[in-house]
Nucleic acid binder design. Sequence first.
RNA 1: GGAUCCUUAGCUCAGUUGGUUAGAGCGUUGCAUUCACAUUGCAAAGGUCGGAAGUUCGAGUCUUCUAGGAUCCACCA
Length: 735
Amino acid sequence: MDKVYNHKDVEDKHYKTWEEKGYFKPEIHPDGKPYCIILPPPNANGDLHFGHAMFTVEDILIRYHRMKGDSTLWLPGTDHAGIETQFVYEKKLQSEGKSRFDYTQEQLYQMIWEFVSESGGKIENQLRKLGFSLDWSREKFTLDPDIQKLVYQTFKQMHDDKLVYRAYKLVNYCTKDGTSFSDLEVTHEERNSPLYYIKYGPLVLATTRPETKFGDTGVAVHPEDARYKQYVGKDIEIETVLGKATIRVVADEAVDPEFGTGVVKVTPAHDFNDFEIGKRHDLLMKQVIGFDGKLNEHAGKFAGLYVKQARSAIIEEMHAKGLIEKIDEGYINRVGLCYKCKTVLEPLPLEQWFVKVESLKNEAVKAVKEGKIRIHPKSFETQYFQWLENLRDWNISRQIVWGMRIPAWRCRDCSEPKAQSAKRKTTSQNSKAINNEPIEQFSNNSEWIVTEGEKPEKCPVCSSTKLEQDSDTFDTWFSSGQWPYVTLQTAKPGDFEKFYPTAVLETAYDILRAWVSRMAMLGIYRTGEVPFKDVLFHGIVNDPLGKKMSKSKGNVINPLELIEQYGADAVRFALIYGNATGNDQSLSYPKLDAARKFTNKLWNMARFLEMKRVSSIEYQVLSIEELKKTAKNTTDREWVDKVEQLVKEITRYIDDYQFNLAAERLYEFIWHEFADKYIEDVKNRMDDNSYLILTTLYVILIKLLHPFMPFVTEEIYQKMPGHGESIMIEPWPTQ
RNA sequence: GGAUCCUUAGCUCAGUUGGUUAGAGCGUUGCAUUCACAUUGCAAAGGUCGGAAGUUCGAGUCUUCUAGGAUCCACCA
């Protein structure tokens, strides 16, 4: 044996052997108790980062259960990551002087498909570098046809159950990326937005958005506000930059009498609150901003201007007409931004598919309250409940091409679109802006023909064959929210029946809402059972200074480089050691170094045993019970007891998801007790019997360590006398 | 506005049913050794566990209040 453990020589070699021998498959223990974890699918087009490296937790559980003899499945897969990937691809197009508008939806989809395929297998190979014992023969991709089919079935079923509906609501719309976003995808930022006090006939109101004035269909005051009682319910005449107009005054609880003058303009087409106020008072809806971010024909001479330009132009005009009473220049508010491109999002009225969440979320909440799903650490339960309980209906339509096309068709001959869609290519030309139409939330599902993916032959009403598919795609989370059962349904026959519900869902806590809660909702809906029994959260890995790693800050550390430098075992161990479940951590080079030295220590312990090996004794594999009987020396006997105790401790720690404690205890025991005390003691009195005890105990220790440090333990195991085929299929130590 | 987490040795962090002298890694100091260990071993210094009050025979651990830091959610016309 070399003097120093060299991870570079062993890691790829062992991984290859493990995979080739089929050790990662549950069939290794066909009759064992089923134990299954579904890997949170990384972006198919992405690169390995520390979020993925934290999946070490899952590999520990998987390797532990496999050694315990369970029929263990860790199922890998990748996600098409709709907006994320399309965004990356559009940047690529941009660098080539092209844009998405140069292609049809089908062309673009095909191009992105090829783009993603080209990087094919990259992330998978990076996960292999970490030693993850994933069953690659069952790997899935969210856009696999069989997966899509199941997702379509869910949509169809929800449609039949009246849980999805088509509605005309305000959405968060990015005029640059040309798509709407769910509430979760909106980021907020404080901005300085001057607050303009504008004269509205006899009233004065404060607004930060004077350019939406043309869409005003009402003015609201608080019902108890004595100052304005005389106006409530009346139409008042106002002077505007486009001439005289009349407008209705309504009283609504949503108005804060303390803010500004206590008077609010109501623009139902461009503000979420105003939309609600408008609904309550039957105000009309008038759209003045188009999906291109420009004012439309209702803005008169300001038509064609972008929102920002229009705002200053209108203010100038108002000044000239004496319509501005004062301006609070220092006013700061929070505006919603596109989380991808930071464009200010416009609330725009759009017809979209929504999921009715009421019954779904109640079931998801119930599952946790009744203990069918247990969340660890428990403190995250609060977040889960809070988010679900306040959840509004979920907009699942996205105006992007990289995703599953929504399987809904509309007849061009007999159905009249109530509102225009944001057309991808020619937004401004096609937009017939809404003008003074009543706000109504209609769910005329009858107009739409929903299928399980196949194109319907003809319109069931007029038999026309001119059917047009909804050009939108599903929100990525609508498909990934179904991941546990769609993967098991399609991986291998019988998997679903055997492994569902899965044992553990382990992931970073930051996607609790977006992903975990949705899997709970959709999983229970579709299968009648929870998708996982335990939810386990890990924290975020920050840079060594405690700052969040981000590309823009330039402080991203590539885990592959650390694996190269320290070895996968050391990287894994450093992430687990000294970090309580669910807590964030800062990457620590001293800790990585300590972990690497630990692999070297293990190596040299093995080397010592090899040097002291007595060739005359026939090595046998003994259980702890047998060792107790075999040990002749009292001290040796004591160490058998200590190791027996350790086995119990480590087993309990893993069962309780206290991986840090298991790792710390192993480190402490192996190095500072077993090596420093026992080996030092036995060194000078070594005989055949002591050697047998020492070696056997050492093999037990590296088995306990194997889930944490798979490579070095395998390499050492292969050098031990009387070793089996592989440490990873050895039984977990017991008495 | 609401919620959660963190505050323990110089630094980074463990410490999950409250129980004997509060632990690790790195760093610091001294000694030993190159005898399995690109080193390792032995030993030492270093903490009133953010602050205050309370519950208890007993609190780093539970309760309340409070200071500072981080994150998330809601969202302001």
